[in-house]
Design a protein around this nucleic acid. Structure first.
Lengths: 161, 161
DNA sequence: CGGAATCACTTGACGCTACAACTAAACTGG
DNA sequence: CCAGTTTAGTTGTAGCGTCAAGTGATTCCG
């Protein structure tokens, strides 16, 4: 187990650029959302996932899966969003261990108001610098990485929806 | 300024996978390094950049650039690494406002000991799922994003070195 | 059935990061 | 040559995330 296979020059180049993007992108998303909506990217993402769910409702565990978050992290964030009036915790009737997070009307309006600016930021930093082939390449490459990073596929990689 | 251009279906697919990877990858890198070396990925990265610098020495600002970090963040982390004996702060003789971070012998040995496991993790999660064409595509795509995210090119994107 | 294991969270404490304010050194223009 | 500005870095604080532990509810199985 002891003979390290180092990266080739092209692999190292790609890796260094990739890791830089991975470090810089969250900050870019966070600062736009913070500035324009006083929301972190993760908070926005939670509200956005709820807004697309049937009944604007999701179980905590399912929501954690869709947002790639641990349950404690989600629990804390949901508490804050609840305090701010963007969603409610409702005990799940079928399984009394479970909790449903339900988007409030104010939360829905917040998403509607915030989405355009967010999409613009995503376009500016990511999508609009890519042509159609790049987008296809990105999709393929990220799918491969996800298969490793998220083997159980907790994240709902529903394609083509 | 009010007519949002939403993402097309392929763009949305690629974006969702990409953002999932961006969320999951840091955790994967951090947990391996934490487990095997009690280092965060950022701490490792700081030591690694120093280990490659001439004289294993870098000005704080330059180091911040190479690690895509803000100066306050770097300053805190350097303090911790200094306490742990992996590097030293040395006032810069030419400019007495500036501080040089110098990798200690213990720091060098830490990098040498830690690098193989880290490279293995990078291979497992990223590089080894890609063929040569994928790597080239990734390099091209990330270069385009970096041009937006890091316009001043603080990060030293030295290609092909 | 009933105790044990598992599940679905929640909570608390600690560590890290960002932001803002501060210090000190080095330019810059009158 | 010195006031004002910019540069380089540090420090304090507040907020977010992780990890470990705890609480009920539910399932498993002998």
């Amino acid at each position: 187990m002891e003979d390290t296979v180092w990266l080739t020059a092209p692999q190292l180049d790609a890796w260094r650029k990739f890791i830089s993007v991975v470090e810089l992108l969250p900050g870019a998303l966070d600062s736009q959302l913070q500035r324009d909506a006083e929301l972190s990217h993760f908070e926005y993402f939670v509200l956005a996932m709820l807004s697309e769910a049937p009944g604007r409702t999701l179980r905590m565990t399912q929501l954690a899966g869709e947002t790639n978050a641990t349950l404690p992290r989600l629990s804390h964030v949901v508490s804050r969003l609840e305090t701010r009036g963007y969603l409610d915790r409702v005990p799940c009737p079928e399984d009394r261990r479970a909790t449903n997070a339900v988007l409030s009307e104010a939360g829905w309006e917040k998403v509607v108001a915030t989405a355009p600016g967010h999409v613009r930021t995503v376009r500016e930093n990511v999508i609009d610098v890519l042509d159609d082939d790049d987008v296809a390449d990105l999709d393929r490459i990220m799918a491969r990485m996800l298969a490793r990073l998220d083997p159980d596929n907790r994240f709902g990689s529903v394609s083509g929806r």
